[in-house]
Amino acid sequence: MAVIRIEDFFYAYPPLLPEGQPIEVLHGVNLSVERGEFLAIMGPTGVGKTTLCLSMNGLVPQATGGVARGHVVVLGHDTRTTPVAELATRVGIVYQDPESQLFCPTVEEEVAFGPENLGLDPAEIAERVSWALQVVGMEAYRQRSPSHLSGGQKQRLAIAASLAMLPKVLILDEPTAGLDPVGQAEVFGVIERLCRERRMTIVMVSQDAERIARFADRLAIMWQGRIVRVDAPPRIFTDQAFLEEVGLAAPQVSELAVALNRRWGTGYRFTLLEEAEEALRRDLRGGQISS
């Protein structure tokens, strides 16, 4: 069953100047995401990935204004007509910049902010805060100021703040951009746990091809305001011509496969390091290729 259904969605931001033209960003997006699925979205800068994310929790067009056509339906709610505050209990969103989404003086207050807005009982808020911090492994930092956390910890906190609203869908807009490798691993560790243990529906914009190949069920490619292809990551990452056309890079190990195929005429199509290791060991032993 589709949890998110986007049909012919068109969106243009309001003009910057009164006499200007609306800024068209999305040109008829079609996409559907199943319950418990991890869908990754990739695309070059400026193709509308963030705008698409914001349309899934109603901020586009409700908070941004502008012109919207078509439908974005999340868990049966049209995001153009359902109030954002109501959607917030169903759709959690984590933005790219942790600095502008963490505004409370302590970690626990940051996580409690959403449930407090819902007017929940303090005991239930405390329960949600503890649960969300435990899921992201941040219980030890309850009284810490968010500004004293590392980049990876800040994004884990942002995820916890979303989880405390008990959403069914989590949208992550490039949550690892600008993080060091440790921070990236921390964030992906949390996302992996949410997928594996809680079967949460996740939509994530990322340029991290290696990790998308490892974790995502499907990969959607955005290009010039449209979704141009949705497929299993290995099928997309081994399609070199397509990737070149849309200006994206495959995981390095897939590029290695292309180079080996060119060199030896083999037909490797691996996207994960383990797959490459296994295939190369097997073929080296079998004598199909030589070192």
């Binding site: 917030a88 910049d97 502008s100 407090e116 007017g119 303090p122």
Partner: peptide, 23 residues
Amino acid sequence: TAQNLSLALASRAFGAQRKRTHL
């Protein structure tokens, strides 16, 4: 920052209830 902040506030149900509660 202010624009991003307003989006972050809205996506965490800011203004959902007239009376907020506290942890």
